[in-house]
Design a protein around this nucleic acid. Structure first.
Lengths: 354, 354
DNA sequence: CTGAAAGCGCTAACAT
DNA sequence: ATGTTAGCGCTTTCAG
């Protein structure tokens, strides 16, 4: 049995634990009976409706308290009340980016009394579709999704849901409903221009599993465009088919330098974790930064900014994305007009490694 | 597949909230009508009950598909069906430890078709209590909580809920229902013994906001016990009242060395982030590791293991904690016997920094 | 300001 | 193998 019913125990008034153990979960009508009012009045009182006397509110509260009443939102939501759940679909929690986004999201939702209901797609469109169906079946107040590449059915489900739906991270493609994020293409381009401006001419790239991370791919595309503008091209490239990590970045740079022994003077990494790995490789091999080799990353993690030499990188405003996503959902639920595209931008950090 | 977008009734305004209100989703009975069977048969067919003909299952599926039917689990759960939601309360998402735990948890829950419903307590017992009440009101299948110090009411609510409740991280205090974690005291003790065995005699500590992180405090206590065993004591200590970070560790070590110029030969940090900060400080100041100063951390993050010299630390099995928490909940829901205390242990990593 | 009636959409418990 | 009957516990009408 799923809910083992506790048997009767001797009551000790005042102890909420004991009070509740004696009975099935008390319902509205039991509270109503004890308070000497109707169910609906209890409902209104407990939800803070304006149309209830302060006096009856108190009566109801006392009754509810003494019974250890716990609201049943399943019933409430089914009966047409609002839900305070927001479905959240992320591709992963391993990449620090997503916990950061989730943090911002949760923080704002929390303030409004909402909760994220989480699903991790693991970069799999099929699973993503499955998750959408699943989360939607709980009739949440809204949905936030960091999509990979949605199936047509997924898009259909979201569009048909009639809920506020926010697609986060990217704003490079038109959203079903709303989007919050930044242009990764622009970030890559921006970094390329910055580096070229600093005099680097022999640039290479070290990346992680790019098939799954089309944000990283967009950055690389932007970066390439920047090189093209200056009549340059990537002089080396290592793309490893594993999730990004410090260890992978270290390995990736070793591999790159083995294949392209001398000419490269700067390596653009797919993100800061990878870039820090690159820095560590240089430290271990006695390669001076940025003298012999310059390094740039993406994300602006605390980690990179605490290196002996501050990492040159692009700060992404991750928790801000989460915050804004929560914000547009709440605004929409509030009946306010909402913007369909929110660009949180990015900030180039000219550090000491490039 | 047809999405019930066109089924809006009486749509008169462009206001999205209105549109949403007017959208009617198809129900079981509509599917039943179309399939020419009863509601309950549809219900059974869609849930994969064994007692339905393959043929009617197909009929039902076709009908459901063509209407764009989407299961309403609110109604299902209210009517006595199982919930696939598990409440999860964590103190923070900023500390990498908790995303890691959440990852393991989500992964296992996912496989069983369950979803975490998240609440972040921000190390505040009042908020924690509030979250417990809130999540419980959705009648989840279980609850996982990384508690700070619960209020009596919180404990009462959890005990009275009759749900599987798992307290995670610590196993140093007796749980209300079940606990999954490790002994942080033991980890600190273990590290102290290891270091003393390596010959260090002048040990100091650099920690972060310990008032909020009683796990770190437990490690420090264990560490001290280890010193005592050897007739030693901490020769220096800096505890900063901020959340742990690489930057803070760097600052903390600088502060420690300023106050205790020469005697210290090893610094135990409250965790790896802090320890890496310490390593960076040494790099920047030209202090050789471990020759002039040895460093040890806690957690076994990828980061520390990718340093030019692998960090000496204790690997905590974070995602394993999440996995085991999910496991005991699922076992309990499955009617199996469950253990009340699960120690996932820890692993000392004898790196190159101490 | 309070109440009575009428479901919300589903599933468990018995039917057949 | 399928159907019938009753709710689950609440909140929306609409009355008073």
């Amino acid at each position: 049995m799923i809910f083992p019913l506790s048997r009767a125990v001797e009551t000790r008034s005042g102890d909420p634990l004991q009070m509740q153990k004696n009975l099935r979960k008390p319902t509205l009508s039991e509270v109503a009976a004890l308070a000497g009012v109707s169910e609906i009045t209890v409902s209104r009182a407990l939800r803070g409706s304006s149309m209830v006397t302060a006096d009856t509110i108190r009566k109801v509260q006392v009754a509810a308290e003494s019974l250890g009443y716990l609201r049943n939102r399943l019933a409430g939501a089914l009966a047409g009340g609002p839900s305070n759940q927001v479905g959240v679909i992320l591709p992963s929690l391993s990449n620090i980016v997503f916990p950061d986004v989730l943090k911002g999201l949760e923080d704002r939702l929390e303030h409004a009394g909402f909760h994220p209901v989480l699903g991790i797609s693991n970069y799999d469109p099929e699973k993503e579709e499955h998750l959408i169906r699943n989360l939607l079946s709980w009739r949440p107040a809204g949905l936030v999704i960091a999509a990979t590449s949605m199936t047509a059915t997924s898009r259909g489900l979201l569009a048909a849901s009639g809920l506020p739906v926010v697609e986060i991270m990217d704003i490079d493609t038109p959203p079903i409903d709303m989007a919050v994020g930044m242009s990764h293409r622009a970030a890559g381009l921006d970094m390329a221009r910055h580096l070229i401006g600093r005099g680097y001419r022999h640039l290479a790239y070290v990346g992680h599993d790019i098939g799954r991370d089309n944000r990283a791919m967009a950055r690389l595309q932007g970066f390439r465009s920047g090189l093209q503008e200056a009549g340059l091209a990537l002089e080396g490239q290592v793309v490893l088919t594993e999730p990004s990590s410090v260890a992978l970045g270290r390995r990736g740079l070793a591999q790159l330098l083995q294949a392209n022994p001398k000419q490269v003077d700067l390596v653009y990494f797919s993100n800061d974790d990878m870039a820090v790995g690159g820095v560590f490789h240089c430290m271990a091999e006695g390669i001076s930064i940025p003298g012999q080799l310059a390094i740039a990353g993406f994300n602006g993690l605390d980690l990179g900014q605490s290196l002996p030499r501050r990492l040159t990188t692009t700060a992404s405003h991750r928790s801000r994305i989460g915050e804004m996503a929560a914000r547009v959902i709440l605004e929409r639920l509030n009946g306010q007009e909402t913007v369909h595209l929110t660009d949180v931008g990015f900030t180039l950090i000219a550090g000491e490694t490039a």
